[in-house]
Simulated assay, not measured.
Amino acid sequence: MNDSQWDFLTELLETPSPSGYETRGQRVWVDYVEAFADEVRTDDYGNAIATYEGSDDGPTIALTGHADEIGFIVNRIDDDGFLHLGSIGGSDRTVTKGQHVTVHTADGPVSGVIAQTAIHLRDADEDKLDDISEQAVDIGAADREEATEVVEVGDPITFSSTVEELMGTRVAARGMDNRVGTWTAAEGLRLAAEAEVDATVVAVSTVQEELGTRGAKMVGFQLDLDAVLVVDVTHVSDYPGGRPDKAGDIELGAGPVVGRGSANHPVVTQAVRKAAADADIDVQLQAAGMGTGTDAREFFVARGGVPTVNISVPNRYMHTPVEVIDTDDLEEVAELLAAFTEQASRYDTFAVDV
């Protein structure tokens, strides 16, 4: 990964983008893709769409990821100045207490910590997991009046963790889910533009996936597409406590993960696997018998049905402040996206043969 790619990735990861409050992160993405896209636009809710115009008779292929991350929201402010929490997306109550957080206010960031009773003061029967709604942030305010001078109900909150380089090509950060997907969509578009592929390629960074794939529903209605490659993260099972019975035998550093089943279109799946083989990219397969749980579930039913495949970046510790990925996987996903766009014009149609 070169310096420009790394800087783009770290800026995406370090720019807070909780669901419903994605504009700062989307600006980072838009500024990057403007250098090589023929057109960049955003819609009323902040979905960002960048287009490379291919030949007139080529297919139109979308490469997508979602911009939002999980987090919290200020639900109420009590008389003592503590901020009581609501969830934004699938926040994990087992990793929240005792964490540094940042409240994102109209006037700038406010630092805080999620309160936790010290182990010395807890009775054994008190060692339970409080729901997010039972947890509170301490910003150091003396009372409600002081707290409301800097914070309002409805302000979003994220963990304060940022990017940490681990050994080799492993990296930890919050929000890998799914800024890595938007990174690959942008990089896939850049590589396709450099290769001057015949296909028209549309890179998309959607909003509010963590709240129910809402941005994808908006974008799927807007665009007339021949195929969609949706990039998100997926669980691995290569760590203590991993669950191969649920995640399959997925590993970090073993390459992009190609979904099979449910929303994953069989013809496009095979085309993606062929593109990977021709580009000498090893892929892992993952079963999705009931659904993908990603933006793919909106794109594949848009406009009467669009052939769609979910391609995943392997990820450890999803929905925690310390998600871990391997940047080799990340680069290979971007290369696979570009390889597919290069071969897409060879297909007269992606429709199944019945």
Results as ranks from 00 to 15, higher is better:
residue 266 P to L: 04
residue 296 A to V: 04
residue 304 G to A: 11
residue 272 V to C: 07
residue 265 H to N: 11
residue 284 Q to M: 01
residue 286 Q to D: 00
residue 303 R to E: 13
residue 284 Q to V: 00
residue 257 V to F: 09
residue 274 K to P: 00
residue 292 T to G: 02
residue 292 T to Y: 00
residue 254 A to G: 03
residue 296 A to L: 05
residue 269 T to R: 14
residue 268 V to L: 15
residue 288 A to K: 15
residue 261 G to E: 02
residue 296 A to Q: 04
residue 274 K to T: 15
residue 292 T to F: 01
residue 271 A to D: 01
residue 286 Q to R: 11
residue 278 D to T: 14
residue 269 T to F: 07
residue 255 G to A: 09
residue 273 R to Q: 11
residue 264 N to R: 04
residue 256 P to V: 11
residue 298 E to P: 05
residue 279 A to V: 11
residue 272 V to P: 02
residue 264 N to W: 06
residue 295 D to V: 01
residue 271 A to L: 02
residue 291 G to H: 05
residue 299 F to Q: 10
residue 287 A to P: 07
residue 272 V to I: 15
residue 261 G to R: 01
residue 293 G to I: 02
residue 265 H to P: 10
residue 267 V to L: 11
residue 276 A to H: 05
residue 282 D to L: 12
residue 294 T to L: 02
residue 266 P to D: 07
residue 284 Q to S: 00
residue 259 G to L: 06
residue 302 A to T: 08
residue 293 G to C: 10
residue 283 V to D: 02
residue 275 A to D: 09
residue 266 P to Q: 07
residue 299 F to Y: 15
residue 280 D to H: 13
residue 262 S to V: 03
residue 298 E to I: 03
residue 270 Q to C: 10
residue 267 V to N: 10
residue 288 A to F: 15
residue 298 E to A: 14
residue 280 D to C: 08
residue 286 Q to S: 04
residue 269 T to M: 10
residue 260 R to G: 12
residue 295 D to K: 00
residue 280 D to R: 12
residue 284 Q to R: 01
residue 297 R to M: 08
residue 264 N to A: 06
residue 268 V to D: 03
residue 298 E to H: 08
residue 298 E to R: 12
residue 298 E to G: 03
residue 278 D to K: 14
residue 289 G to S: 06
residue 259 G to A: 13
residue 274 K to E: 15
residue 277 A to P: 04
residue 287 A to V: 13
residue 287 A to W: 11
residue 266 P to V: 06
residue 256 P to D: 10
residue 262 S to R: 11
residue 296 A to K: 04
residue 287 A to D: 13
residue 274 K to R: 15
residue 273 R to F: 00
residue 277 A to Y: 12
